[in-house]
Each structure stands twice: as C-alpha cells, then as structure tokens.
C-alpha cells in the first residue's frame, strides 16, 4: 500500500491533480503562479527528494527562459514601453505575459512529474477502469505486451545479425529497411501469438459475464476527510477566480497587481489545495515521531 501520499486513494489524488491543473490554467496572477510552482516543487521534494525533478530540470529551465526571453520581442502589444528593438516596441505587458505563461506551463510540467511518481501505472489504470473499463483493459493488455515485444525484438535482432542484417551500419535507407524487416517479423509472430492469448482468455471465461474488477484500493475515513478538505478549498478558489480574484488584466493595458483582502483569502485556499501532499507527509512524520 505504501506510506504517506502513496496510501491516499487514487481518486483523491486524481481530484488533486485535476484541480492543480485547473488552477495552473485558470489563474494568471504572477504571485499565484509562483506560489503554485514553489508548492509543487515542495511536493516533488517530499516524493523523492527531487530526483525526478532534477532529470526534467534542463527541459523546464530552457522552456521557461525561452518563453520569457522570446515573448517580449515577437509581441508588441501593450502600452508601457521599455525600449525599441528594430523598430518594434518591447513592452512591460508582453514581458509579464511571457512570465505568466512560462510559470503556468512550468506548473503543469511539475504537476506531471509528481503525477508520474504518485499515480503510476496501476493507479491511473485503476481510475480509468472505473470510468472506461474496456478501454482501460485494452491499455493494460497493451502495456503488458511492451516488455514482451521488447524481448522478442532482441531475439529477432540476434538472429538477423547472424544473417548480416543490422541497423547499426550502412546508409540510412538500408538501416531503415532492415529495422522495418525486423518489425515485420515481430508483427507476423506476435499477431499469431495474440490470437492464442485471446483463445486462452476465452477458455478461462472472458466475456461470459460482466467483468468484475479487482479493487485494490478502498476509500477510508481519512480519504473521505481529505476529499472534503480538497473540495471545500477548491470551490472557494474557483468561486474567487470567477469573481476576478487571482487574475490580472495584461492586455491591452496592464491592470493592478495589488492584493485585495479577498485575494488573500483565495490565495490561502489555493495554497491549502496545492500543499495537500506536503500536509499528508507532514502529518505522517508528526505521528511517527511524537505520538505515544
């Protein structure tokens, strides 16, 4: 089952990621987005001390910098002009817009890094098996075939290498050709095999009745409480967002960045949602260390 965030029911986690993704694309106040990025970075740190985040770092940094640097120069909308570059105005609005866009994308990327760790294969398929059972079953089968096919590929490649067919040498045309021949052998082999798999499924009763799913995850009292917690703060945040809090006007003229009292309310409730995994882990740590 796992500890901490890994023991939370997949549906709760799915709701969490949906709401974070929604926030990232819904709010555009720089402070909100910066807080979101930092919160998700913290969440990633609690998962694996940031190992996965480090792997994605080059992509994240280059994408962010690219958008921030390029946007002001290709877009000249706005009224606060910094300077002119090749006859085009470079504006505060366009710069800020670049910052906002890049942070929103960064937040989505961080979300997916965390999602790939927490809602790994089984859990995400569990969610879809409740919504689209046949599709989820198809995907599950397909995922199971991948390592099998890889093993077969190495086998075929070993045999073909003896015959002198390789994709390591020669012109691109010949390499592509031998790569495809290897795949063709794989296809002919695997299609026959697939029929056999299906027949053995049928022999064991596939399709005779309704498919009964194995349910490895049960919703506990804790899960329910967390779900209510998330839902309440999500609704507060979204309601605030629809009233215009947490958002700024960028084009055609930059509006105010000022935080009104209600902005603080929306901001806090957003943070309460975004930091949910950190709270779960923190609670676990406290319990482990200090409870009798």
């Amino acid at each position: 089952m796992g500890n901490g965030i890994h023991s939370i029911h997949p549906f709760v986690m799915f709701f969490y990621y949906l709401s974070i993704g929604f926030f990232a694309m819904f709010f555009n106040h720089p402070a909100f987005l910066l807080a979101g990025c930092l919160a998700l970075a913290a969440v990633n740190l609690t998962h694996d001390r940031g190992t996965a985040m480090k792997q994605w770092m080059p992509v994240m940094v280059s994408m962010t910098l690219l958008i921030i640097l390029v946007n002001p120069f290709i877009n000249s909308r706005g009224t606060h002009i910094f300077f002119y570059f090749r006859g085009k105005q470079v504006t505060l609005e366009a710069t800020l817009y670049g910052v906002v866009t890049s942070m929103s994308l960064l937040m989505v990327l961080l979300l997916f890094i965390s999602l790939n760790i927490v809602l790994n294969g089984n859990k995400i398929l569990y969610i879809f098996s409740r919504i689209l059972p046949k599709t989820a079953f198809l995907i599950m089968l397909s995922i199971r075939f991948v390592p099998l096919l890889k093993r077969r590929l190495t086998e075929i490649q070993d045999v073909q290498r003896v015959k002198g067919m390789t994709i390591k040498q020669g012109t691109i045309r010949n390499r592509a050709k031998s790569g495809m021949s290897i795949l063709q052998i794989l296809l002919a082999w695997s299609l026959e095999e697939a029929i056999e798999t299906a027949d053995s499924m049928k022999a064991r009763g596939y399709g005779t009745g309704k498919r009964s799913p194995y349910i490895p995850y049960r919703i506990t009292k804790t899960d329910q409480n967390w779900l209510i917690y998330l839902a309440i703060f999500f609704i507060i945040s979204v309601a605030g967002g629809f009233l215009g809090y947490g958002k700024i006007i960028i084009y055609p003229k930059l509006g105010t960045l000022h935080f009104y009292p209600l902005d603080w309310v929306v901001f806090t409730s957003c943070l309460a949602v975004m930091l949910f995994p950190v709270l779960v882990e923190g609670r676990e740590q406290l319990k482990w260390n200090y409870s009798a």
Binding site: K134, F137, L138, I139, L141, S142, I143, F145, V146, L149, L183, L186, L187, S190, L191, E193, A194, I195, T197, A198, D199, M201, K202, Y206, G207
Partner: peptide, 14 residues
C-alpha cells in the same frame, strides 16, 4: 470479441 481486443492491444503495443 476477446480476439479483437487482444489484436488491437497487440497492434498498439507494436
């Protein structure tokens, strides 16, 4: 049919 699902899964995997 079961055979069709497995066939589609195999094609997607390939």
């Amino acid at each position: 049919a079961g055979r069709e699902i497995v066939l589609l899964a195999m094609l997607a995997a390939i």
